[in-house]
Design a binder for these strands. Structure first.
Lengths: 178, 178
DNA sequence: TGTCTCATGTAATCCGTTACATGATTGG
DNA sequence: CCAATCATGTAACGGATTACATGAGACA
């Protein structure tokens, strides 16, 4: 089973919130979904062209060159979202390094754990900022409860990393004492 | 800055534990590191050829066709592990769907959350099994503390997912009642 | 004898990033 | 007026999966 690109899902999703230019699509995915998703211009612009050819989005002929999602586009979005999740194979660089940590040394491992801990703390702060940002938006009230769902997931994940880092620190000390 | 493949790191790492065939390299990465890393044959075999040409691994000319890591190979492994982590851009299919959950409907979202919860519970069980498996191994005592470090990370992550799922269930109920 | 696992490899294909190219508009 | 941001695209490149092809040995 070949795995299909999910770029069009993300683009249609972004346009389902409000009409936007391609640039703004990238912007909003990066800013709001950034902890869970990413798209590059090299994907977004060709995708928009395809979507327009299929009549799923329309480029506002008015002064704003924004794209608007059509009724068919909304149908398609629903359909795409319903498809089974295809997860990318895991590739966790931190875990790869720690797994072979014997060859890296406990000090370097400790540094990696510290870095992960700091990153998680930053992520927590950013998620808090995003939460505040979307709560202040108007016109997206119906979407917000779902957005908060994903933010909560990010927060749980970040806090889990912090807790693990504490454990790992002690663990590494114990390794060194043997 | 172009992003280099980390396949050779994974392969050298696997061979640093014990000599193996390419098939067994894939096997052990899949079985033990499976929650954090993955490699396919299409990557492993060409990588082994390259590594052999560079003198980082040697194919045992004896009856076993296993590859053995050389002293230079160990140096290279250390060096590769020390390089800065390059994280793949995030692509979380579950979060993408929940984020646009308004178009998916609360019932479908609930099903996604349930699935994630079940998956996390399974992951927890598998990690427990891996923990038991490696604890019983001999000849890998020096590596085991580091392996346990990664297993702990997986467990924290899985438990965080379970906790989030509980929260999400309640959250979705609240959405529906409005 | 036939199927399953072990074992090695290659070719097609695609996804996605990065880099490059270009231009309009805004604001200090 | 110059820099930064907004805006749209394309081409090159590389990484990785998937599928295909092949064969040996085990074992039932």
């Amino acid at each position: 089973m070949k795995r299909r690109s999910q770029t069009e899902t993300a683009v249609l999703g972004a346009l389902s919130v409000m009409p936007m230019t391609g640039y703004a699509v990238r912007q909003s995915i990066h800013d709001v979904l950034g902890h869970f998703w990413s798209e590059s211009f090299g994907q977004i612009y060709p995708a928009l062209t395809r979507l327009e050819q299929e009549g799923l989005v329309e480029q506002g002929a008015d002064e704003t060159a924004s794209y608007t999602i059509t009724a068919t586009g909304l149908d398609r979005l629903h359909q795409l979202l319903s498809e089974s999740i295809q997860d990318a194979p895991p590739r966790n660089g931190l875990m790869l390094r720690l797994f072979f940590g014997r060859h890296l040394g406990t000090d370097a491992c400790r540094a990696l754990v510290e870095q992960a801990s700091v990153d998680a703390a930053n992520r927590l702060a950013e998620l808090e900022a995003v939460r505040a940002e979307i709560a202040g938006e108007t016109g997206t009230e119906a979407d917000q409860p779902f957005w908060l769902l994903t933010i909560a997931a990010g927060e749980h994940s970040a806090r889990a990393t912090l807790a693990w880092a504490d454990e790992a620190r002690a663990h590494l000390d114990a390794i060194e004492r043997t």
